[in-house]
């Protein structure tokens, strides 16, 4: 695999590459096969570390669980030292998911319906059914502190929290995510979903950039208390 470089899969490739056989894992693509659908990425990145990190994940994480996310996100992020500008291009995540690490997508999310799995290879964004690899990289980017991926791991270990937080604006603010993780780490933490919704409602009156983790924990505690 050495010599494999980052590329971007063009949007129109979707009809050609996301065949049922591919989505179900019955076939894979050589980089050469995909070349006709690829453009150069903004950055030239050697994918050897990425491939190695994916192999580690496949070897050690139990399939179909949030543990895959928690393990994979920091590894993927470290292995892909790309700028946010580059990472904002859905094409590279499509390339990585379809051409380089389709196994990781299916390892994390066993194929149930073709439509949903297609989204996991293709759709940009932070939904749980968006491009699996791009989503994990972005969550790591938004939650890391330098080279410390502690928060990344914590938030991803709770699949539910990650699913709810990162599709909202509040998920784009590291202190808010940190507050949530700290609050829900408590043994007596209430159900996640209603509290995320309540918090987002309260946050509508706030400058999100002014919220620190302590304040978030305080608000969550108030809401949890009020809701009881």
């Amino acid at each position: 695999m050495s010599g494999l470089r980052l590329a971007r899969l063009v949007p129109e490739a979707r009809a050609f590459v996301l065949t049922p056989e591919f989505v179900r894992g019955e076939r894979a693509y050589d980089p050469d096969e995909l070349a006709q659908w690829c453009d150069d990425a903004d950055e030239d990145v050697d994918l050897e570390p990425f491939v190695a990190s994916v192999e580690e994940v496949l070897a050690s994480a139990e399939p179909g669980t949030a543990k895959v996310d928690a393990l994979a996100a920091p590894k993927i992020h470290r292995a892909l030292p790309i700028s946010r500008r580059t990472a904002a291009d859905p094409g590279i995540w499509r390339f990585l998911a379809v051409g380089v690490a389709p196994g990781l997508v299916r390892h994390r999310w066993p194929v149930r319906t073709l439509a949903t799995t297609r989204r996991r290879f293709w759709a940009p964004g932070m939904r749980h059914d968006s491009n699996t690899i791009g989503r994990l990289w972005w969550i790591a980017e938004l939650t890391r502190n330098g080279d410390d991926y502690g928060l990344t791991r914590s938030v991803l270990e709770s699949s539910n929290l990650a699913t709810l937080l990162f599709v909202r604006r509040i998920g784009h603010h590291r202190p808010i995510v940190a507050g949530f993780v700290r609050f829900f780490a408590r043994a007596d933490a209430p159900a996640v979903e209603p509290l995320v919704a309540r918090f987002s409602a309260v946050a509508s009156t706030c400058a999100l950039d002014a919220l620190d983790a302590d304040t978030v924990v305080a608000i969550l505690s108030d809401l949890a208390f009020a809701g009881r």
Binding site: R168, R169, I170, A197, A201, A203
Partner: peptide
Amino acid sequence: FEVDADGKEVA
């Protein structure tokens, strides 16, 4: 009705 930080209707 109440809206959240994303402008979505909550309740």
